[in-house]
Design a protein around this nucleic acid. Structure first.
Length: 832
RNA sequence: GCGCGAGUGGCGGAAUUGGUAGACGCGCAAGACUAAGGAUCUUGUGGCUUAGGCUGUGGGGGUUCGAUUCCCCCCUCGCGCACCA
């Protein structure tokens, strides 16, 4: 016999369940550690190999922290509202309640087979009324704090999906899911005032340990921009047009204005002579999809016929409409300074508008100049340098003194569209009469349960399928809101519910969240950077402001896992050949049964490309431990990396060698109580040090490499010392928990679980060698090496080098002019 | 276009503050044990080579006794944003 994962894995999974090994409770005498993986959407297809990449990393850290004395909570649950289940309902008539429950059972089984140290008693599912009762409740908290409103806005409308979408759900003018076209449409919508929190969401990024790239993306998404608002009087009218600009110092160069075509003021700006053309242009813009509008960069626009007065020059300047000005940003209108803004320059050239230089240093008739210089043609401000915003500050001061404008900060972030015209989501707990909000429901009226129906198809008119459930909609002479919440609602606070998952009186008892929060390690994909991670931060901050939680940031430390890719095989004609039809001969790939040689490319896994790896198949063949080990060994957590089944073979074979280190051919333990050799002790202490350090830094691949080396060397030493193997089993256990338990109990004869055993400590004295090899460079080139004590002095090192005949040969007949010696690193000799 | 990240053997990847480039694994080669080997074990494995060396971390320059690491320019790939005033 040898290592047979099927024999041990289910045994230990059953033991953990029955023993409650990973069930935790608050314990003030111990330091908590809250380890969290982003919960999955339970799709009907089951777990994908991408999921375990992050889950395994989080699990290794959890088990490591537990062994280091922390009170570790690692929960798991399901983000179970969402479109795929609803799509299935529309196509196959299966109620999402049913199909989701089935998918969850599949997921749970798969997660258990991977041996994760989850506290299953904390499992939550966002589509469970006991859960979404509190999602609805938090909605009412936001509502009462004035953060939720309804507004007639231009929203992202996806007619293929029959719903509106949030900004982060629109990628390049298409829906993130399905890639359907998205258009701008004016609709009455529920919105969350996330813009009120823009500054705090930006500032508090400084207080969290997140990847810099992720913080940078959130900062960009929030898009803080400092400048000024300036009022331009409209000629022949009493009102004015307000613009936002980051360059108030170029005000003297504003030769025209542009208003977004959707702006309500356009109606009154259009003169009779221009009205027809203006209306036509508005219609043209409205007909364009978001994608068209982004792709076509040629400037178009129409003069409204109205003039405005440049407040500092007193000149009358024309007011145009053009689709390069966005209604939703700033004031929806701009002052155009063609001399110093590329877009305005292109527009002015196309329309024949005048270009006046107000900052020296460029050739503004030939191209816009956005660099620094001195103000010119700017009256009293001539000569002011623009560098370091000097001119901007002076001009703002002047505008404020003249009541023409004032300093202003604008954010790119828009309010969060918080409604979907779909069935499978949390009902919005609002009662209306004649279309107007009467009130939100009280907590004792929640949950507002999603009614059963047999028609899930979007109406296409902007009303959700719920509107057809008459006896649910109409109540006490009022109507229920029929829109549902977006998928990101339930996931915006689930980390709090895990702290107190069965509480029927509160979303989470304050004492529980005070103990467990914030999340100490959060692991998930980088695709949630500006959606989920921003929304979750917002909800946490609102609950903080409401005094319902202590912390204003939910996730202390965040790490992303990379994408697991796969090889796609192509014929010379670039046709895809599924992996199952590929065979390998002489290191080359051929279409099975033919001589058609195939090329391969690393790509994202997808069903269409026939390159999907199913975790169940892997576990069946190699066991969960080998899969976990391989996932950790593939490369750095955050990198994308391709799945190579050969690589998995290598790790499986390693586990077999580990087995043989602990057991003989008859599976009898080889462990003995002989005193361990000095060499074996040195090896295991170095390994403990390396593995400990690497887990702390989440460098799992190099930790495993160190264990490979230990296995190889302990095997060749024939070391079966209990002391040494005990430590080794403990190091292995976070990565390969089933094998770890088996070695711990069966091979080493311990009782209980390795999970609660104290992590081995290393003795620094064993980690230093009596002598080491260091390189010797002569004239900057490595010529050999010497064996000396790590702390040997320069003279000793030099003597060792001179004693080496090869090295001495290089120095022969030359004068040593310089010696560079770095202890334990290098000896570099410069000779002439 | 702008922003971020990354380029190291046939492949995945290692390499404290700049200090012997290629750890570990895969693959490949030779051998051992075998009825057999997609098992196991041993040895070798960046390239070139007149076998002494030379060369080598995307390309080119620079700083340094010494550069995968720091600086400048360029190329390629990936991701994100996309007229944000």
């Amino acid at each position: 016999m040898s290592y047979t994962p099927a024999n041990i894995e289910s045994k230990w999974q059953q033991f953990w369940d029955e023993d409650g090994t990973f069930v935790v409770h608050e314990d003030d005498s111990r330091t908590k550690f809250y380890a969290l993986s982003m919960f999955p959407y339970p799709s009907g297809k089951g777990l994908h190999v991408g999921h375990p990449a992050g889950y395994t990393a989080c699990d290794v850290v959890s088990r490591f922290k537990a062994a280091n004395g922390f009170n570790v909570m690692q929960p798991m649950g399901y983000d179970s509202f969402g479109l795929p289940a609803e799509q299935k309902a529309i196509e196959e008539g299966v109620a999402p309640q049913i199909s989701t429950a089935e998918s969850i059972n599949t997921f749970r089984g798969q997660l258990k087979r991977l041996g994760y140290a989850y506290d299953w008693e904390r499992e939550v599912s966002t589509c469970d009324p006991e859960y979404y009762k509190w999602t609805q409740y938090i909605f009412t908290v936001l509502y009462h704090r004035g953060l939720i409103y309804q507004s007639d806005l231009f929203v992202n409308w996806c007619s293929a999906m029959g719903t509106v979408l949030a900004n982060d759900e629109v990628i390049n003018g298409k829906s993130e899911r399905g890639g359907h076209p998205v258009e701008r449409k004016a609709m009455r919508q529920w919105m969350i005032r996330i813009t009120d929190y823009a500054e705090r969401l930006l500032q508090d990024l400084d207080n969290v340990d997140w990847p810099e790239a992720t913080k940078a993306r959130q900062r960009d998404w929030i898009g803080k921009s400092e400048g000024a608002v300036v009022q331009f009087k409209l000629q022949g009218r009493d009102d004015h047009l307000e613009v936002f600009t980051t360059r108030p110092d170029t005000l003297w160069g504003a030769t025209y204005m542009v208003v977004a075509p959707e702006h309500p003021i356009v109606q009154s700006l259009a003169t009779d002579a221009q009205r027809e053309a203006v209306t036509a242009y508005q219609a043209e813009t409205a007909a364009k999809s978001e994608l068209d509008r982004q792709q076509v960069k040629e400037k178009t626009g129409i003069f409204t016929g109205s003039m405005a007065i440049n407040p500092v020059t007193g000149e009358a300047i024309p007011v145009w409409i053009a689709d390069y000005v966005i209604y939703g940003y700033g004031t929806g209108a701009i002052m155009a300074v063609p001399a110093h803004d590329e877009r305005d320059w292109a527009f002015a050239k196309a329309m024949g508008l005048s270009i006046i230089e107000v900052v020296s240093g460029g050739d503004v008739q030939n191209e816009a100049y956005a660099g620094d210089g001195e103000l010119v043609n700017s009256g009293a401000f001539n000569g002011t340098p623009t560098a370091n915003n000097q001119a901007v500050a002076k001009v703002i001061e002047y505008l404020e003194s003249q009541n023409m404008g004032s300093g202003k900060i604008t954010y790119r972030l828009r309010d969060w569209t918080f409604a979907r015209q779909r069935y499978w989501g949390e009902p919005i707990p609002v009662l209306k009469k004649d279309g107007e909000v009467v009130r939100v429901l009280d907590v004792d009226e929640l949950p507002l349960v999603l009614p059963l129906t047999d028609n899930y198809t979007p109406t296409g008119t902007g009303a959700s399928p719920l509107s057809a459930v008459e006896d649910w909609v109409h109540i006490d002479g009022m109507d229920r809101e029929t829109d549902t919440m977006p998928g990101s609602a339930g996931s915006s606070w689930y980390f709090l519910r895990y702290c107190d998952p069965r509480n029927v009186a509160s979303f989470c008892d304050r004492s529980k969240s005070d103990y467990w929060m914030p999340v100490d390690l959060y692991v998930g994909g980088p695709e949630h950077t500006v959606g989920h991670l921003l929304y979750a931060r917002l909800w946490q901050k609102v609950l903080f402001d409401a005094g319902l939680v202590r912390d204003d940031e939910p996730f202390k430390k965040l790490r992303h896992q990379g994408m697991i890719q796969s090889f796609t095989y192509y014929t010379p004609e670039k046709r895809i050949v599924p992996q199952v039809d590929v065979e390998k001969r002489d290191g080359k790939f051929f279409k099975a049964g033919t001589d058609v040689e195939l090329s391969s490319r690393i790509e994202k896994m997808s069903k269409r490309k026939g390159n999907v790896i199913n975790p169940d198949d892997i576990i069946k063949k190699y066991g969960a431990d080998a899969m976990r080990i391989y996932i950790c060994f593939m490369g750095p957590l955050e990198s994308d990396k391709p799945w190579q089944t050969n690589g998995l073979d290598g790790q499986f074979n390693w586990l077999k060698r580990v087995w043989r280190l602990f057991f003989d051919d008859e599976d009898q333990p080889l462990v003995n109580d002989d005193e361990a050799s000095e060499a074996a002790l040195k090896l295991i202490h170095k390994t403990i040090k390396k593995v400990t350090h690497d887990i702390e830094n989440m460098a799992f691949n190099t930790a495993i490499s160190a264990m490979h080396i230990a296995t190889r060397d302990l095997t060749s030493m024939k070391c079966h010392s209990r002391e040494v193997l005990t430590a080794f089993a403990q190091l292995l256990a976070p990565f390969a928990p089933h094998l770890g338990e088996e070695l711990w109990t069966v091979a080493l004869g311990n009782t209980g679980t390795v999970n609660t055993a104290t992590w081995p400590a290393f003795d620094e004295a064993y980690t230093v060698d009596a002598t080491i090899n260091i390189g010797v460079q002569i004239m900057g080139k490595t010529r050999g090496q010497i064996t000396i004590a790590p702390d040997a002095d320069q003279d000793t090192a030099l003597a060792a080098a001179k004693a080496d005949p090869v090295l001495a040969g290089y120095l022969e007949g030359k004068n040593l002019v310089r010696v560079i010696y770095i202890k334990g690193r290098i000896l570099n000799l410069i000779a002439k």
